[in-house]
Amino acid sequence: MRLVRHPVLCNYYVTYRCNARCSFCDIWEKPSPYIQLEDVAQNLRDLQRLGVNVVDFTGGEPLLHRQIHEFVGLAHDMGFITTLTTNCLLYPKYAERLRAKVDMLHFSLDSSEKEVHDKGRGVACFDFVLESIRVAKELGERPDILFTVFRENLSQLEAVYRDITQPNGLVLIINPAFEYNSVATGEQLITAELDYLSAFGLRKGVYLNEAFIQLRKDGGNHVAKPVCRAASTTLVISPSNELVLPCYHLGEKKFPINGQLYELHRSAEVQQLAALEGRLPACEGCTINCYMQPSFAVETSKYFWQALPSTLRYNLAKGTWKRMLTR
């Protein structure tokens, strides 16, 4: 049963440019402009009209945009729940300007060992993560550590929890890696490893959406009976101010927004393409977390009930649960 008919999330790409070269991502290879403040302001007003709750300012590396603090500040002041993930290379520089504007601030860290983390990210950013934790805590911020899990770094999870997140009072977010297009992430996690993650997710100070685990055990999205509700739950806005459908990773079609996001999203052409969510050939086997998370939240299914406990705990810890209910 569908519980929510309107979109709940906007993945707002401020730029595709990145100062890292992660082995499991190809976005940094793309040429890209930077979003403009006037477009952001108009789009946020339209996102309000559409019923969106959460705006994730993403990239690329979002802190490469010199106005990022203005974007998140505007969205936060308008009542959106704001999220931002960074590799931390620029966070110490921008920390003061971002202060109290990002509800869910995520620092990417995939190992407790500097050499391992830096190799996966393609740049030396491990020390910047540790420095960013120190700076954020001094400012009264509560960042989370986002750990992207592959078979090759699964053994590092315990040390990151023991040595970094727990001593600093931070939430450890377990983010199972996913494949898309031609980007490979190595061998997929086997059932025993997925079970290990499920058990780890029950620990204090750890957030894991258990529905991510079940979806992988089920072989991902299936076009004959799709789980994915990417296009109806999530708006993707490109750095060129386009609405991208059905999701960023497929990007079947891009519609220029031209100050008319509300009307564009409700247009027949967009809605016809949105109706194909989860049913396109490339959707078979998909496990992309950033679209499955909102998909699980809008209709009752076994994934809804598996996702609910951790989602409630996390929003309670972050203090965002009241706004989730009132928007």
Results as ranks from 00 to 15, higher is better:
272 Q>M: 13
187 E>T: 09
110 D>V: 07
196 Y>G: 04
285 G>H: 09
219 G>S: 04
149 V>H: 01
121 R>Q: 11
260 Q>P: 02
61 E>F: 06
58 T>P: 01
85 T>Y: 03
271 Q>Y: 07
72 V>Q: 02
19 N>G: 09
188 Q>G: 13
248 Y>V: 13
111 S>D: 07
30 K>Q: 15
301 S>F: 06
212 F>V: 03
216 R>G: 03
100 A>Q: 12
268 A>S: 15
29 E>M: 13
16 Y>D: 10
137 K>Y: 05
205 G>M: 02
322 K>Y: 12
184 A>L: 10
220 G>D: 07
299 E>T: 01
77 D>E: 14
184 A>D: 12
184 A>R: 13
40 V>Q: 03
152 E>L: 11
319 G>T: 06
200 F>D: 02
180 Y>A: 07
86 T>H: 08
45 R>P: 00
108 S>N: 05
296 F>G: 00
264 L>Q: 04
65 H>S: 12
319 G>K: 09
8 V>A: 00
93 K>E: 15
93 K>Q: 15
186 G>C: 08
65 H>F: 10
327 R>G: 04
151 R>Q: 14
41 A>W: 06
203 R>C: 05
326 T>D: 14
14 V>G: 08
18 C>N: 08
203 R>D: 08
163 D>T: 09
244 V>A: 14
148 T>G: 04
7 P>E: 03
162 R>M: 03
289 N>Q: 15
247 C>T: 05
7 P>W: 00
146 L>C: 13
16 Y>V: 06
189 L>Y: 03
53 N>M: 09
286 C>H: 00
318 K>L: 14
51 G>F: 04
237 I>H: 04
321 W>C: 10
142 R>Q: 13
133 I>S: 00
153 N>L: 10
203 R>S: 08
267 S>C: 05
317 A>Q: 12
170 L>V: 05
275 A>T: 07
250 L>Q: 13
73 G>K: 01
146 L>E: 03
157 L>P: 01
38 E>P: 02
